[in-house]
């Protein structure tokens, strides 16, 4: 088991594995998302208080979860990259950042379109929306720092450190925003006041979460493959990869 791990920690042997996994998770993502959308948009009954507007949560909740989860994953790979100076883990962190930012952006966007019919406003400075906004800024900071440093190895380590500092701060940010929100808001308008969910709604939510999760894995692995080729372009195995690709 341990041997396997180390074998795949080198870009050469990880590249084909990432390709196979990416395709597999892509198929899973398509399957789960289609099923989840069918359950969420067609099968699940209309909510008594929110009408059909509540169907947005089948997109909003999974993307919001993924935005947070991907930041944790990015911090995990960053810690490995900084601690053991492993190239592949830094590449994984680099590949995760754009998808994490996209998930945060989609969570905010769908949250706004859910908030308008539910709260009567697109943006309400709800605690969760506000912390997701700050999470998006953290993602954009990591991406901007990466693109501002020319030397990839230096960028790896700088971004890893920034991600870790951000990861220490994320719980503090969530706590402080929650605190601020309860202090300033008399009437509680938050997702905790969401409707009591029917069983099909929970099912739809779980299936959509599986779909979004699979999508993120598939996209991240596809991106890490490009990053590997960009970084290792001088090496012999990339040359033979190109030769094989040309023959195809």
């Amino acid at each position: 088991m341990i041997v396997n791990w180390f074998r795949y920690s080198s870009p050469v042997s990880f590249y084909p594995l990432a390709g196979r996994l990416s395709r597999a998770f892509g198929v899973l993502a398509a399957g789960f998302t289609i099923a989840g959308l069918y359950i969420g948009l067609v099968v699940a009954p209309t909510d008594a208080t929110q009408g059909d507007a509540y169907r947005i949560i089948f997109l909003h909740v999974p993307t919001a979860w993924m935005a947070m989860l991907i930041y944790l994953a990015m911090a995990f790979w960053s810690a490995l990259a900084l601690g053991f100076n492993t190239r592949l883990s830094a590449m994984m962190a680099q590949a995760l950042a754009p998808t994490g930012a996209l998930m945060a952006a989609l969570a905010l966007w769908s949250g706004a379109f859910w908030g308008r019919p539910t709260w009567g406003t697109y943006w309400a400075w709800d605690a969760r929306m506000t912390s997701t906004l700050i999470l998006l800024f953290l993602y954009l900071g990591v991406i901007a720092l990466r693109s501002a440093i020319d030397d990839p190895r230096r960028a790896d380590r700088a971004c890893a450190l920034l991600s870790l500092v951000g990861a220490v701060n994320v719980p503090i940010i969530y706590f402080s925003v929650q605190w601020w929100n309860t202090l300033h808001q008399g009437s509680s308008i938050s997702f905790t006041s969401a409707p009591k969910m029917a069983m099909t709604m929970v099912e739809g939510l779980l299936v959509m979460t599986a779909g979004v999760w699979s999508y993120c894995i598939a996209v991240t692995l596809a991106r890490v493959r490009s990053i590997i080729v960009e970084r290792e372009r001088g090496s012999g195995w990339v040359a033979s990869l190109i030769a094989r690709q040309g023959a195809r």
């Binding site: 700050i134 800024f137 953290l138 954009l140 900071g141 901007a144 720092l145 501002a148 440093i149 020319d150 230096r154 700088a158 920034l162 500092v165 951000g166 701060n169 503090i172 940010i173 706590f175 402080s176 925003v177």
Partner: peptide, 21 residues
């Protein structure tokens, strides 16, 4: 941000979200 391009505004993007709490 030492030695990185886009000094001041990049620094703001990195630091200001951390200042929120």
């Amino acid at each position: 941000t030492l030695g990185a391009r886009g000094g001041g505004s990049l620094l703001a993007l990195l630091v200001l979200p951390l200042y929120a709490p």
